[in-house]
Simulated scan of single mutants.
Amino acid sequence: MSLPFDLPPANPSERLRARGAAARPVGRFEPYARAPEHDGWDIAEEERLIRTEVSVERPRSAITRNQSPDVPFERSLNPYRGCEHGCIYCFARPSHGYLGLSAGLDFETRLIAKPEAPQVLEEELRKKNYRPDVLAIGTNTDPYQPIERKLEIMRRLLDVLWTYRHPVAIVTRGSTILRDLDILAPMAEAGLVQVGISVTTLDAGLARDLEPRAPSPPTRIRMIRELSRAGIPVRVMAAPMIPGLTDHELEAILTEARRAGAKAASMMPVRLPHEVAPLFADWMERHHPGKAEKVLGRIRDMRGGRLNDPRFGARMKGEGEMAELLQQRFKLSCKRLGLARALPDLDCTQFHVPPRPGDQLELF
């Protein structure tokens, strides 16, 4: 296999439960690597269960701006760094390298939370030169990952956005979003929110290995149903599609999502940037050794002979016959199911800055 670098061996003293990665490959910015080494003593080390650790960060700004031609948004917000869902294919894993942490186990066990993000966001919205535009949340790591149930950062962010009548587009696979229907429903009625739900597979066993701490496929279909019943526009995201592993489920995923009430759909073939490539290859060898070469070969066929093609215009779609066939299947299914449309544009005209106690009120 042609991979960016070899993975270190798993630490035998670490016991893993529901984790996607099995090792901590060094980040691409680090000058040194660490690997467990037997010290020669025949003394069995006690295994310890690897638990999730959460650190706190105070962001200097809440809103991140980007100019990528591959994404439909200009500004985004992420309340967490790292993601406990542990999806092995996650393209956000390399972002942990900027913190000096591993894209492997560190990404899913050493999380960074931003509990002050709602206050920082509010200060940004109150600036005189601020102009509203759709704010995308969940474009890097999931805002409704398991620790959100306790920390409620996302809920407080929604409180701020609803108070200011600011439009927001949310991407998630976390069922905690249903907790916030009391905020999301009135926002949807005002044309201020839309939600994308990621469904990678309908196979519960495969999902348990592929996305070990994410909600099950039936739960995600239920999320689409309950959000839709509350009047919230939902887009099903059949992403990523992994050739030779999940791509045969594309039509079934779209069909189930449409039955549940999804109004639109999107699809993206898997991409494996930087450290994600060896992590995914290792996962294939551990869980589907007989399919590893086939799946990795098909990914290369769709990525110009590599496991990732970073070029703008190609990285989200892939290229070649297999990528084109996947796109054709997606388009035909969307047309047949009535999903070949965009969700309604969100309304930026309602944005206003509410007065604080003691502020001078306007006369007109």
Rank of each mutant, 00 (worst) to 15 (best):
P132S: 06
L135S: 07
L158R: 03
P132F: 12
R131F: 13
R155S: 10
D142F: 02
L151N: 05
R131I: 15
V134R: 12
Y130F: 15
E148S: 11
P143G: 02
L158D: 04
K150E: 12
L157Q: 14
N129L: 13
N140K: 05
R156V: 05
L151R: 09
K128H: 15
P143T: 00
K128Q: 15
P132R: 02
I137F: 08
D133E: 15
P146G: 07
D142K: 02
P146R: 05
R131W: 10
V134Q: 06
L135P: 06
D142C: 12
I153A: 11
T141W: 14
A136K: 09
R131Q: 14
L157H: 08
R155V: 03
V134N: 06
L151S: 01
L151D: 10
Q145K: 07
K150D: 09
D142L: 09
N129R: 14
P132V: 10
G138L: 10
P146Y: 01
R149M: 05
P146V: 07
M154N: 06
E152D: 04
P132G: 14
I153G: 10
T139K: 00
A136G: 04
P132A: 06
E152T: 00
P143C: 08
Y144A: 02
R149Y: 05
L158M: 07
P132E: 12
A136H: 12
V134H: 13
Y144V: 01
E152P: 01
R131A: 13
L157K: 01
Y130R: 05
Q145M: 12
L135K: 04
Q145H: 15
N140D: 11
P132I: 05
P143K: 07
K150N: 02
T139P: 00
T141K: 00
R149N: 08
N129A: 14
L157Y: 03
R156C: 02
D133F: 04
N140S: 15
Y144S: 11
T139Q: 07
P146D: 11
L158F: 06
P132W: 08
K150F: 02
Y144H: 04
Y130M: 06
L158G: 02
M154C: 07
A136V: 03
E152S: 03
R149H: 14
Y144K: 01
N140M: 15
D142E: 10
L151P: 02
I137K: 04
D133C: 10
E148D: 15
R156E: 10
T139D: 00
Y130A: 05
E152F: 03
T141S: 14
R156M: 01
N129S: 15
R149P: 00
I153Q: 13
Y130Q: 11
K150W: 02
V134K: 07
T139H: 05
L157F: 03
L135R: 03
